[in-house]
Measured scan of single mutants.
Amino acid sequence: QEEEKEIKRLAKKFNASEEEARRAWKKAGGDPETAEKILKKKG
């Protein structure tokens, strides 16, 4: 599933848990760029 792959990639890229990545993904409405910004800010 595309979403799961994206979440795993985000978690790995930002050294975050999949739970954090999933939360960022949901907050971003499934937009990878926005999710990255959220995780970057958090990191």
Rank of each mutant, 00 (worst) to 15 (best):
K13T: 06
K5W: 12
E20Q: 07
T34E: 14
E33N: 09
E33W: 11
E36V: 05
K8Y: 08
K8Q: 12
K41L: 15
P32L: 14
R23D: 15
S17M: 04
S17Q: 03
G30H: 05
K37L: 10
K13A: 07
P32M: 12
A24T: 02
E6A: 12
E20T: 07
A21V: 13
E2R: 09
K41C: 13
P32A: 11
A28V: 02
E20V: 07
Q1P: 14
R22Y: 09
E3W: 10
K41Q: 13
D31P: 01
K37A: 14
E2V: 09
A21S: 04
Q1I: 13
G30W: 03
K42L: 15
A21Q: 01
K37M: 12
K41G: 14
S17R: 04
K8E: 08
S17V: 03
W25R: 02
T34A: 13
K42A: 13
K37F: 08
I38S: 03
A24R: 01
E2T: 10
K13P: 00
K42I: 14
E33Y: 13
E4H: 07
P32F: 11
S17Y: 03
G30P: 01
P32H: 07
E3V: 10
L10V: 02
K5Y: 12
I38G: 02
Q1E: 12
E3L: 08
L39R: 01
N15M: 08
E20C: 12
F14L: 05
G43Q: 14
G29H: 10
E33K: 12
G29Y: 07
R9D: 05
R9V: 05
K27Q: 15
A21Y: 01
R9Q: 06
E33L: 13
R9T: 05
K40Q: 14
N15I: 03
A24C: 03
K13R: 08
A35R: 01
A28S: 09
K12H: 09
R22H: 05
W25K: 01
E33D: 10
G43H: 14
W25Q: 02
L39A: 00
E19H: 06
A16K: 08
K40T: 11
A16I: 15
G29T: 04
E19M: 07
K8C: 11
L10G: 00
L10M: 05
L10A: 01
E2W: 15
S17A: 04
G30R: 05
W25L: 15
K12Q: 11
K41H: 14
G30D: 02
F14D: 00
K26W: 13
A35E: 00
L39G: 00
L39F: 03
E18A: 06
K12T: 08
K5C: 13
I7E: 01
K41W: 15
A28I: 01
E2C: 12
K5F: 13
R9I: 06
T34W: 11
F14M: 09
G29L: 10
E20D: 10
K13M: 13
E6W: 15
K40V: 08
A35Q: 01
T34Y: 10
E3K: 06
K5G: 08
K26G: 09
R22G: 03
I38T: 03
E4D: 11
K8W: 08
E36A: 13
D31H: 09
E36F: 04
P32S: 11
A24I: 04
E20I: 05
G29A: 09
K40Y: 12
E2A: 10
E20Y: 04
I7T: 02
W25M: 10
R23T: 10
G30Q: 04
E36G: 09
R9P: 01
E19T: 06
K5A: 12
R23K: 11
I7R: 01
A11Y: 02
K40R: 14
W25E: 01
W25C: 04
I7V: 08
E36L: 04
F14I: 02
G30F: 04
F14K: 01
L10R: 01
K5S: 11
K40P: 02
K42T: 13
F14Q: 02
A28R: 01
K26E: 15
L39I: 04
K12Y: 09
E6H: 10
E18K: 05
T34Q: 14
A35G: 00
E2I: 09
E18H: 07
E2M: 10
E19A: 10
D31S: 06
K27W: 12
K12R: 12
A24Q: 02
R23A: 15
K8F: 08
L39K: 00
N15G: 11
K13H: 05
S17G: 04
E2L: 10
E3M: 11
E6T: 08
K13W: 06
E18T: 08
K41T: 12
E18M: 14
G29N: 11
L39Y: 01
F14R: 02
K13S: 04
L10S: 00
A21I: 06
G43Y: 15
I7P: 01
A24N: 00
K12I: 11
K12F: 09
F14N: 03
K42G: 14
K42P: 08
K27F: 10
A28C: 04
E2Y: 11
G43P: 11
E19V: 07
D31E: 05
K37T: 08
K13V: 06
I38M: 07
W25A: 01
E4R: 07
E4L: 09
D31V: 08
K27E: 15
L10I: 06
K8L: 12
A11F: 02
T34H: 08
K37R: 12
F14T: 03
E4Y: 09
A16H: 04
G29Q: 10
K8V: 08
K42Y: 14
I7L: 04
A11Q: 08
K40C: 11
S17N: 05
D31L: 04
Q1M: 14
A16M: 11
K42N: 13
E4C: 10
A24S: 03
K41I: 10
E2H: 10
G29M: 09
K42C: 14
A11H: 02
E18I: 15
K40I: 10
R9M: 07
S17D: 05
E33G: 08
S17W: 02
Q1G: 12
E6R: 06
K12G: 05
K42E: 14
